[in-house]
């Protein structure tokens, strides 16, 4: 820290000296002569160099403080108009999501309506990176429409077909809906249908919020 302060002090004193030279040339100069011109030019140059030095040292100090963690990294500053617009869009999307939820009612699993976009056509809202989107979590939730008794091994869904594993290749991913990836000796617990409904609703709300805020993966 000492060297930054020293540099700033030297630059500040240089700025004072350059300014004083300009003032002296104007006050004591009288008629323009070589002396006045030399003093004026040198004072202006010293003042300019001192201003540049001040900027350089302050920038260097800021960089150092940022790398040390004293200063926060630069964040995207949004204008008030942009912030207002994004707040409005967020509110509108929240209302839309609430209406959609109210229209769907308490049905546990509704077939997709024709107006609703397909699951694959939805924009990527950053949930994929968290493992909460698409088919990445589908294998955790059994299909409530299939009775438990129909699953082989007393409710455990079928794992990868033996042909794939016999060839030494990876099992197909994602597994079929209601299935579960092979997990060795510690199988994952299968959540209930209520949990599946909750997860789906939460995901719909989160997706609409993230799409409205426009933050995407940067927010995470």
């Amino acid at each position: 820290m000492g060297r930054y302060l020293s540099g700033l002090c030297a630059a500040g004193l240089g700025l004072c000296g350059g300014g004083w030279l300009i003032v002296t040339a104007v006050l004591l100069g009288g008629t323009p002569s070589d002396a006045t011109l030399v003093t004026l030019a040198t004072g202006a140059a010293v003042a300019l160099v001192s201003v540049v030095a001040l900027g350089c040292w302050s920038l260097a100090w800021r960089q150092r403080m940022r790398s040390d963690g004293v200063l926060r990294a630069k964040s995207r500053a949004s204008s008030p108009r942009q912030a207002r617009r994004s707040r409005r869009a967020l509110r509108r999307d929240m209302r839309r999501a609430a209406k959609k939820r109210a229209r769907r009612g308490p049905r546990p699993e509704a077939p997709p309506s024709p107006g609703r976009p397909a699951r694959s056509a939805r924009p990527d809202t950053g949930l994929t990176g968290l493992g909460l989107a698409g088919t990445n979590i589908a294998h955790l939730v059994p299909d409530p429409r299939i009775p438990v008794a129909l699953h082989p091994r007393g409710g455990d869904p079928p794992v990868a077909p033996p042909a794939a594993t016999a060839r030494g290749g990876d099992p197909p991913y994602p597994p079929a809906r209601g299935g579960r990836p092979p997990s060795g000796d510690h199988p994952l617990p299968s959540p209930t249908a209520e949990a599946a409904t909750l997860v789906a609703e939460l995901r719909a709300i989160l997706e609409s919020l993230l799409a409205a805020s426009g933050e995407g993966e940067e927010a995470w």
């Binding site: 060297r3 540099g7 030297a10 240089g14 000296g17 160099v49 030095a53 960089q63």
Partner: peptide, 15 residues
């Protein structure tokens, strides 16, 4: 940036 600042101080010295 530190080098530039040092160069500017050297310029002040030369001035």
């Amino acid at each position: 940036m530190t080098r530039a600042g040092l160069a500017m101080i050297a310029l002040i010295f030369l001035a």
